[in-house]
């Protein structure tokens, strides 16, 4: 693996998506400030969460579909004229796009936790649920990345990103009804119950499997353009 070139390709994706990244970061920060300013009223929280989720899912979809976009906009032959193998290209796409997404994700996650901790309007017991839901978005994004990179199909990428949005709601509603979550969510202290930890473990495992399967499929591909 030529790590220098993989880094150059990641830099290229970062350069090309930094405008969008900054816009997402600013919008996310404003939303959190808005939630805090509205003193945690229910309407503000619901609106804020919808906006934050949309930012993350939208940014994830844009980043992860860049494989499909490169093919459609015919910049792939340009990239493949560089001294890289296709696996190195795939690596740069998966790692690069996930890294860029992770930076935004981490910034917003920290912002949320900071908002919960720093303002008097939210129970700290909300933190585990917030983390679980944020990791769930990461799962959706990684899965989307895997599908997009391996199928190279715009149709599949769009379908999975839509399903991801719906799935996130479904997961949220199901999890919030679980005993290990529901019981501690309004507590003044965060409780990392076995249920919460098990869910996190499943999420992290899904992420690992998605990426591993994507790499495996890519390493067996023969024709690329």
């Amino acid at each position: 693996m030529n790590t220098f070139l993989v880094r150059r390709l990641i830099y290229k994706d970062w350069y090309l998506s930094q405008g969008l990244f900054l816009a997402a970061l600013v919008l996310g920060t404003l939303t959190l400030v808005g939630i805090a300013a509205a003193k945690g009223t229910q309407l503000a929280v619901i609106l804020g969460v919808i906006i934050l989720a949309t930012i993350l899912i939208g940014m994830g979809a844009v980043l992860m579909s860049s494989v499909v976009v490169e093919r459609r906009q015919q910049t792939l032959p340009f990239v493949m004229s560089l001294p890289i193998s296709y696996l190195e290209y795939t690596t740069s796409k998966l790692i690069g796009c996930l890294l860029i997404f992770l930076v935004l994700w981490a910034a917003l996650l920290l912002g949320m936790i900071a908002t919960i901790l720093a303002t008097p309007w939210f129970p700290h017991g909300l933190i585990p649920f917030t983390v679980i839901m944020m990791v769930e978005m990461l799962v959706t994004t990684c899965f989307l990345a895997a599908v997009s990179v391996t199928t190279e199909s715009q149709g599949w990428t769009i379908a999975i990103s839509q399903l991801g949005g719906l799935g996130l709601n479904a997961v949220g509603f199901s999890i919030v009804r679980l005993h290990g979550i529901k019981d501690t969510i309004v507590s003044p202290h965060p409780h990392w119950t076995p249920t919460a930890l098990a869910i996190l473990a499943i999420e992290l495992a899904t992420i690992a499997i998605s990426i591993a399967v994507a790499f495996y499929i890519q390493s067996r591909k023969r024709d690329f353009v």
């Binding site: 290229k12 906009q73 015919q74 910049t75 340009f78 004229s81 560089l82 001294p83 190195e88």
Partner: peptide, 30 residues
């Protein structure tokens, strides 16, 4: 051995596009 070969190849094809949002100067630096 394509990665090694491509170090010494300049390739331009009819279906090759550059990044629309970037300048030619950026491509040259890259």
């Amino acid at each position: 051995d394509q990665a090694a070969a491509k170090r010494d190849i300049g390739f331009v094809s009819e279906d090759m596009r550059l990044y629309e949002a970037a300048t030619l100067a950026w491509h040259m630096k890259f």
